[in-house]
Each structure stands twice: as structure tokens, then as C-alpha cells.
Design a binder for these strands. Structure first.
Lengths: 235, 235
DNA sequence: CCAAAAGTGTTCACGATACACCCATGT
DNA sequence: ACATGGGTGTATCGTGAACACTTTTGG
């Protein structure tokens, strides 16, 4: 097979910034790196791109290895390509942020990678430029979620409005008026109220809601703002 | 030097989707590919990433080679990484869209690449998946420009409000009310009216405006909507 | 004097915000 | 009975959209 001559080939890695939400706080799934350099240090889950897979497929593979989950919400963020970002060998990293339902995950946790959930606010130091990747991912998530209904990916199938509101409040480090919030969310018609209530976090109990899957997928890329004044939060 | 073992290295290319605006229509700067395969076919300007440069730097280098311009507005869009997208050898392409002032360019055009401006609506067929890259870039540009004041990058230093409006109208393939448009644009305080008028395109003449550079750079990433109902245009 | 494009103000409607009370229940 | 969190309605304000006439001047 013919090749392009005189050009340098480089390693390409996908690194996953895996977000979860435990009902109270944002979490990040990190692993303890199992190989040199920086063995034992905390790191994002990642892997080198294989000859037969695209970046997207590679990221899904890496996620499946760690969490057992497939079809996870993934979004590419701009590549990290400083020539010396990896001290071993030049590696271009294409980060993906992933939104997963922390409950689905728990059962499947592989012990192979020494993975652990950290509160986003209490992250350990990470190797290389992974810290910066997390920062970028957080910014991107804030941006995207201000305009599109993607945070549902972090919630279990059934969730309550107060939980949904907490989710948004934690991401934007603010509080919202619950009357306005519920009106805005319900007006999208994306949510279906269930008979059942969640009695865990209050005496009265809060109704569970499920997504109207059809409307949800139709509106996935739609422009739905759940938070007031999004411009305040967008960079 | 130590290396990661057992992994495949790949070529990484940057490809530039170069947009211009001639005062009436969007244009795209394409080159006639000078090497096999698909020699002579129209293509985006691109290049392989070099050992000492980041992707961003590589894209700027490629742009400079073709146009002579430096410090051009560039934005990365998600990588194209299908294993067989380049028939010669696996290459991951990281596309950047560039917004340039078509007037600054014209003098500097290198003849080396057989470059030519095409109307965006009358593009020839492009090699590989470059067509799809242009589509993606167009979508991204529409998205970004609906929320942030980036289209000024396409205009010369002095421009008139009617030209600015035409620019937006062409991108969104619609028309806007000029009273609302000018009010909205001027209310940002980003524009400074000049004494001079452009008498080219009307008898009465239209005032030239310049950007207030300081405010512009402050608001570069700010949330400024110049078009009504942006949600209608965002995917 | 006429054609062609530039420039400008007001009204209206809707969406966004602010705000406070009652409800259900477990202890 | 009371403490705790859940749920709901209304009044007001401000932003965004619709809309039409006057101005300038080259021919």
C-alpha cells in the first residue's frame, strides 16, 4: 500500500471526562493509572486509538471497558496537542466528556482500573494536562446545558423535579426559583409525571417524572433553555 | 527515549475551511490538490501536523502558506477519524474553520496552490470527506454566529450596516427587518460610526462603521445575539 | 423629478422574573 | 402539633417583533 512519505505519525488518545450526579453533587470518575509514567497517580480514563476504530468508537470502547455501559452520551471537545504534553512520546489527546447515570454504573464497576468517583469539587491532582481537560469539559457542559436539554443523561429513569433543579443549581453554582423552574421545565412537555412519589427526601414526597423519550430525542439538539439569563453563565 | 509500546501511530492533518465574504455572498477558498491521490481535484487547504507544532499552530501555518495572513480567526471543529477516510493511509483530520477578510487576502494570494474563491453555493466536488467538513463548518458557523459577534472577522475594517446585515442574511438564508437589526447591533456599543460614507452601493450613501476594538475583544466570547429567534436556526 | 437605498420610532405581545402561601406527612 | 420539603398562581416588567414613512442624491 502506498503511504504519504516524509511525514511523522503520532499517537492519538481519547480521554474521557466522565460526569455523574449522585442526587446532591456532581462527580467525576477517575482511575489510578496502571502503567508508567506516573503510575498510581489519578488520571482520566483513556486509551490509544486503534487501527480500525474512529475516535468516537474508541471513546465508547474506553467507556465500556471502565463502566460496562454502552450508548453513553459523549461529546468531543477540542484536541490537546502541545508537542510535549506527554513526556513519554508525542500524543495528541482528543477528550470526550461523558454523561452517565451513576446508578446504572455502580453495579458494573470493574476493579481492574481502580476507578473511583470524586466530588467534582474535591478532585485530586491529575496527570499531564488532565486537569485542564476537566476544566474545559466543565465549561463546555455548562455552555451546552444552558441551551440544550442534555443533563437528563445524568439522571436515572425516574427522577423528581427537586432533584433536577439541584442538578442545574450545582452545575451553575447558583439557586433558581422553584416556581419558575418547574413551570419552564414542564412547559417543554418533555416530562411525564408518574403516580409514584419519592419519599426518601421529604415527608410529603415528590412526584417522580420520566422523560417522554420520543419528544426528548426530537428535542435533543433543540434550543431549550431551562435556566434564566444563560448569558451570565456562558464564559 | 522511552515509547509507548504496541500502539499504532497515525498521520494527523489539519484542514482549513476558509470563509470569506465579498460584500454580497459567502465564499470558500479552495485549492487544486498538487499531489496524488486525486491530484488536480479541488480540496480544502490542509497539511500534516509537524513534530514541533500544536494543531492550532499547524492550522495557522497552513493558512499563512496559502494566504499570507497571520492571526486569523480559527475554530476547531470535531475531528474526522473514520479509519478509511483517506485511501492512501490512515489519517485523522482535525478541521478548522477560518474567517478572513477577503480584501486583505487578495493581494497576497500565492499561486503555488492554484487557489480559487468559490461561491459557497457553487462549490465544486471536493476530495475525500471535505464536502462533509464544509457542511459541518457551515453548521458550526451558523451556531456560533447566532450567539457571538464573530462575523466581523469577515469584514474589512470599515463597513456599513447594510453590508453587515447582508452578511447575516446570507448566512441564515433569510431576511431581517433593518430597523430591528440596526437597533440591536448598535445597542451593543461595539460599533463606532465614521464621518465617511460608502457611496458605492447607493446614491444617498451609507455610513461606515468601525469596531470599537477594545469592546469587541472584551465581548468576543460574550453572548450577543444579532438575529431574532436564534433557536430557529440552530440545528 | 424620480428611482433607489438609507435611516429612523412606536406599539404590542409575550416571555421572564419576582414573589408567598397552602399541602402532605412522619415524628 | 409542628417541622420539613413539595407544590402551585399572579402581577409586573422588559425584551423582541412587527410595522411605514422620510431623507438623500445621482441621473
Amino acid at each position: 500500500m502506498m503511504k504519504y512519505s516524509g511525514q511523522t505519525r503520532v499517537l492519538v488518545a481519547v480521554d474521557c471526562i466522565i460526569f455523574g450526579f449522585d442526587g446532591e453533587n456532581f462527580k467525576l470518575l477517575l482511575i489510578q493509572r496502571g502503567f508508567a509514567p506516573q503510575k498510581q497517580k489519578w488520571s482520566l480514563m483513556g486509551g490509544f486509538i486503534q487501527p480500525t476504530e474512529s475516535l468516537e468508537v474508541g471513546a465508547q470502547r474506553v467507556l465500556k471497558q471502565l463502566t460496562g455501559l454502552e450508548g453513553v452520551y459523549l461529546e468531543q471537545i477540542p484536541a490537546f496537542s502541545e508537542p510535549n504534553r506527554d513526556p513519554v512520546e508525542r500524543t495528541i489527546a482528543v477528550p470526550y466528556f461523558a454523561l452517565i447515570d451513576i446508578q446504572k454504573y455502580e453495579a458494573q464497576l470493574s476493579t481492574e482500573y481502580h476507578a473511583e468517583w470524586f466530588l467534582l469539587t474535591e478532585m485530586p491532582n491529575l496527570i499531564f494536562d488532565h486537569q485542564r481537560m476537566v476544566e474545559m469539559a466543565k465549561m463546555r457542559l455548562r455552555y451546552k446545558a444552558a441551551l440544550h436539554p442534555i443533563l437528563f443523561e445524568l439522571l436515572p429513569e425516574k427522577f423528581t423535579l427537586p432533584k433536577l433543579q439541584t442538578l442545574y443549581e450545582k452545575l451553575y453554582e447558583t439557586t433558581f426559583d422553584k416556581r419558575n423552574f418547574s413551570r419552564k421545565v414542564l412547559s417543554t412537555g418533555l416530562l411525564v409525571r408518574q403516580e409514584e412519589k419519592d419519599k426518601e427526601s421529604s415527608r410529603k414526597g415528590a412526584f417522580y417524572y420520566k422523560l417522554d423519550k420520543e419528544k426528548y430525542y426530537d428535542n435533543f439538539e433543540a434550543f431549550l433553555k431551562f435556566i434564566p439569563n444563560p448569558e451570565k453563565f456562558l464564559i
